[in-house]
Amino acid sequence: MWQWIHKWASPKHFYRVSTRGAPWLWGLALILLPVGALWGLAFAPADYQQHDSFRIIYVHVPSAMLAESCFALMAVCAVVFLVWKIKLADIVAKVAAPFGASMTFAALFSGAVWGIPTWGTWWVWDARLTSMLILLFLYFGIIALRYAFAREHSGGRAAAVLSLVGVVNLPIIKYSVEWWNTLHQTASFSLTKAPSMPESMWVPLLLMMLGAYALFGAVVLSRTRNEILRREHRARWVRALITDTCDKEH
């Protein structure tokens, strides 16, 4: 099994086997996201209390889930990079960070827009909102720390350590609405109980969530492939790849 993992961890092997994967993920995201968005924003029924402002859920929940999943992925990569020194893990952690930061910002922004009509305020310092803001700052810190080092490897290690420190924030975000009194309501979706809304409302939300994960996969995979080429540009296989592509075009 270790051999199999090491084979996957080789940038060259990963680049070759992932060639087919990225277009599929992009295609999936490009189908699921527009369908889910149109369904949710135009055809799903409005809520009996919140009316149309309820539709912000179709942007808010997927972006918030991605913000947390992306950080979890970065933490896993950090362990793999620090313990096994696998460079591919560092590459994935590097390219995932900006995506996670944008998703966190999207979740905070859509939440603020939603808060004005329903709560009567765009921001309160409650545990959920504050821990989410801390997540955004952690992302900024991780991105900045990586570029604060002259050597790429040292930057990667520092960023990995900060991701591991920051991972403690994830359970705090998740359970903040249960541990403390917050203005934010508890989760609508969970793996263990039925969704707290009818099918006509949760099906488009599920499509948006799957689409968001497909987009996440597509972005991370494509950017990982670019980063592999950049880091390995002196390697023979990259030179061969480029000469091949040029030959085909001429």
Partner: peptide
Amino acid sequence: QVLAKHDENYMPKEVADVLDKEGLSP
């Protein structure tokens, strides 16, 4: 200042109307 809290339950207006006819509150 008064802020409204809302719960995690969402329901289309039509469903709420049906419930209302049956004499049930959400």
